[in-house]
Design a protein around this nucleic acid. Structure first.
Lengths: 234, 234
DNA sequence: GTCTATAAACAGATAGAC
DNA sequence: GTCTATCTGTTTATAGAC
């Protein structure tokens, strides 16, 4: 426990986790049998009960695994400026810095969700758990989604001056996230309409560019009236 | 067959369809048993085989039903200007008209997806079929998604002059649709982050207003450089 | 820790009475 | 057209050999 922080006694366990993540992601939780998982992991059904207590335990373990990995990936991006200098308080950026950091984060998210190889097993699982309000969604929300959303809201404040936790800003950040995530969730629809067989680096880059342009357009004052959000002409 | 174009001999059939739509939408296809459906329709399992041939037949019938209803709902919006006058050719609008029609369609879609009572049973089913690439997705895509997307692209062309079927425009329309649909698919996440117990009319209106503002910002020339999409500084 | 064998519950489909 | 009863296969979970 002390001398060996990470020995590899988790061959079977890890294989089951990998297989489950993959299959839950592609077929859904209810659409996947523990037989399939055991077969894909070159193991047997009983090993799932042994290591995870059952199918639901395996689901929870997948969620924790995903949250851990995503936090690891998101960490360097989330506190790029927090740990820069001690007296900086790590909270305020110049509007231009915040603006370009927002665009940079958007680009990263698009590339990660659409074509990063390390995201391939994680993202489908996460998105399914996000749609299905399962008891597992809690960990994913608290561990990943909320921190990232809060960070984006903070950057938005630094870029525009609008209060980060206002309804207006929180919802606007969701419209940004929605644009990105739709290209994953609605993947089959997009590919079909675009007559693309699959996403490639070039196509991902194109998508990221369009969302970046949208983002910059919304961030721009545009010298028009944007007094209060509730005064739409309807 | 001729004298009675639509008598009501479809009490059980209709009840099964309604129940299936509801349960498939909330629990997913594989997460729903035909026993549940029969029970919810106050019928029995055998009636499903009799009326629809089996569970998969019921799924297809649900898809057709949804496509029919959505087309009925979307029709008056889609060809509002097509049937206006014969010599109008029904294709070209003034930029201002196209622009306000785009905003109007966005508002309609948000309200329909988030709080229209008639959408409540349809939308979850459709969104699930859209994520899972099932053989049923075909009908939904061809019947609803593609026509709506094409119409939006056409309006975008009328509003901006960019060619409707260009990659640029088709993807931009998807960023618009993504913003809207995310508030449905990511509903649980949004509600939690906003600390809202549920969507209300006011909140839906607020969301619609923010997306409308984004749309207008992107549609505006903004007097900045927007020469070609591939020349991002990176 | 790993695996085979089996139990108990569940799925979808169907036969046949009414 | 409707429904009960049943068939057949599959599911998760588990007991027990190794």
């Amino acid at each position: 426990m002390i001398a060996k922080p990470k020995p590899p006694p988790e061959t079977t366990r890890a294989a089951l986790l990998r297989a489950a993540l993959e299959l839950f992601g592609s077929q859904g939780y209810q659409g996947t049998s523990i037989r399939e998982i055991a077969a894909a992991a070159d193991s047997n059904i009983a090993s799932i009960a042994y290591h995870f207590g059952g199918k639901e335990g395996l689901r929870v373990a997948c969620a924790d695994h995903v949250v851990g990995l995503l936090q690891q990936i998101a960490a360097p991006v989330l506190d790029l400026n927090v740990a820069q200098s001690p007296e900086d308080s790590g909270k305020n950026l110049s509007p231009d810095d915040a603006r370009s950091k927002l665009v940079a984060m958007e680009q990263r998210m698009v590339h990660f969700l659409l074509s990063a190889p390390e995201a391939k097993p994680l993202v489908p699982f996460m998105l399914r758990e996000m749609s299905d309000p399962s008891p597992v969604m809690d960990r994913i929300f608290t561990g990943v989604i909320e921190p990232v959303h809060r960070r984006l809201c903070q950057l938005w404040q630094d870029a525009t001056g609008e209060p980060a936790e206002s309804e207006q800003v929180r919802l606007t950040i969701f419209t940004l996230i929605g644009q990105i995530i739709y290209f994953r969730i609605g993947r089959e629809v997009v590919l079909r309409r675009m007559q693309w067989p699959s996403y490639t680096e070039d196509r991902t880059e194109k998508i990221a560019g369009i969302i970046a342009a949208n983002l910059e357009a919304v961030l721009s004052p545009s010298t028009q009236d944007q007094p209060s959000p509730g005064s739409s002409p309807e």
